[in-house]
């Protein structure tokens, strides 16, 4: 069950987390609560996996080279192939999706050559081709994804 403080922290601090020596105290002052209440509430959000962390968010391709990759594999082999793909440390997210291209994952490599190597190795190991769709442009608009926390 989320308290009003949890919800405030979630919706209002997705950005502009204070860059000051005591950021939790700053937030506490802004919200009219104590520092320990803020720290406890954030710890609860963290432990219940409602937030994955508090910290800097890095846009794609700022560090390393990444691509969104997709494979079309027969349903019967999906599980095994997904396991092969997930085993690569360069693979960061791997999702099964309802489509002919049913396996989608992100590859993050240290450079273009490394990225090509990983793709080639996955193709060789699985016997299926990898469709690579690297980012051309990012239309990110700096607005928070405002969540409806009504029934949380």
């Amino acid at each position: 069950m989320m308290t009003p403080l949890h919800k405030q922290l979630l919706n209002d601090y997705q950005r502009n987390f204070p860059l000051s020596p005591t950021p939790y105290q700053d937030i506490a002052t802004e919200l009219g609560v104590s520092e320990i209440e803020v720290i406890n509430a954030l710890t609860e959000l963290n432990e219940t996996d409602v937030i994955t962390r508090i910290g800097p968010v890095i846009p794609p391709n700022r560090i390393g080279v990444s691509t969104l990759a997709a494979m079309a594999v027969p349903e019967a082999q999906l599980h095994d192939i997904a396991q092969i793909v997930s085993a690569y440390p360069e693979v960061n997210h791997n999702y099964e999706r309802e489509h002919r291209f049913n396996l989608w994952f992100v590859i993050i490599a240290s450079g273009a050559g490394h990225l090509q190597q990983v793709i080639a190795r996955i193709e060789q190991q699985t016997g299926y081709s990898v469709m690579s769709l690297p980012l051309v442009d990012d239309y990110f608009i700096d607005l928070s994804f405002r969540m409806d926390l009504h029934d949380c």
């Binding site: 997705q14 950005r15 996996d49 994955t52």
Partner: peptide
């Protein structure tokens, strides 16, 4: 790094799945 766009933002990263 935020000014240069190396960092997009600093804050809580919600887990949307967990939030319904």
């Amino acid at each position: 790094m935020q000014d240069k766009g190396i960092i997009r933002r600093i804050g809580a990263v919600p887990n949307h799945y967990k939030l319904g």
